[in-house]
């Protein structure tokens, strides 16, 4: 590693330039795919420089520089924005009933049960199955256990989102059943092996 401190500065500068570039590219009247791609490419380069200079630590520091630059640009936008007359959104989120609508409390409780305890169990099964596969593929204990520790919350979050995006109780049940059956099968096979 040659002069990691200098490279960190270069990475931080590149991240800042990427954010400034995005600011310019996104304020054009017509979006330019090339300009956007260039800026995102520059951001990727900045992160790569951070990684090359000081690994994960360098990457974290470089991304903080980019985020700090974006915050400064936002502060500038907040200070200079004129008073507008646009009307605010009234988009419905369908969380509480409108006037005269029923509350559907049991439906809400069922959604909660599916998304929280049931989805947690399925996510845990998925993570454990991934651990069994990793172990069978020759991964070390530390790697496969850490994979499981990270996969469980990640799978749960994705599953929670997928369930809430799926309309209809039957479709939700199908998603859960399909996702639960695969890891159960893998874990059973692992036991038998």
């Amino acid at each position: 590693m040659i002069m990691p401190a200098l490279w960190l500065w270069v990475g931080g500068l590149a991240a800042t330039m990427a954010v400034l570039g995005l600011r310019a590219a996104w304020s054009r009247q017509h979006r330019s795919t090339t300009a956007n791609a260039l800026c995102w490419g520059f951001m990727g380069l900045a992160l790569a420089i951070g990684w090359a200079a000081a690994g994960a630590w360098g990457m974290a520091v470089v991304s903080l520089a980019g985020t700090a630059c974006a915050f400064i640009l936002l502060a500038q936008a907040a200070i200079t924005a004129p008073t507008g007359k646009a009307s605010a959104s009234t988009r419905r989120a369908h969380m509480l009933p409108e006037k005269g609508e029923a509350l559907h409390l049991w439906r809400r409780i069922a959604t909660f049960l599916l998304c929280v305890p049931v989805a947690l169990a399925v996510a845990l099964l998925l993570a454990l199955a991934a651990r069994a596969i990793a172990s069978a593929a020759g991964w070390g204990e530390a790697d496969s256990n850490v994979l499981t520790l990270f996969l469980m919350p990640l799978c749960w979050a994705l599953l929670l989102f997928a369930l809430l995006m799926t309309q209809g109780r039957r479709a939700q049940a199908r998603v859960l059943a399909a996702l639960a059956s695969i890891p159960i099968l893998i874990l059973l096979l692992e036991r038998l092996a």
Partner: peptide
């Protein structure tokens, strides 16, 4: 993402609130 640098902090009626939420959220 398209509005990532737009912050109408002085608008009323919920616009400013939504802009703060979305801009801080994206960055």
């Amino acid at each position: 993402f398209r509005d990532a640098f737009r912050l109408r902090a002085r608008d009323r009626g919920g616009i400013a609130l939504a802009d703060w939420h979305n801009r801080l959220g994206v960055w």
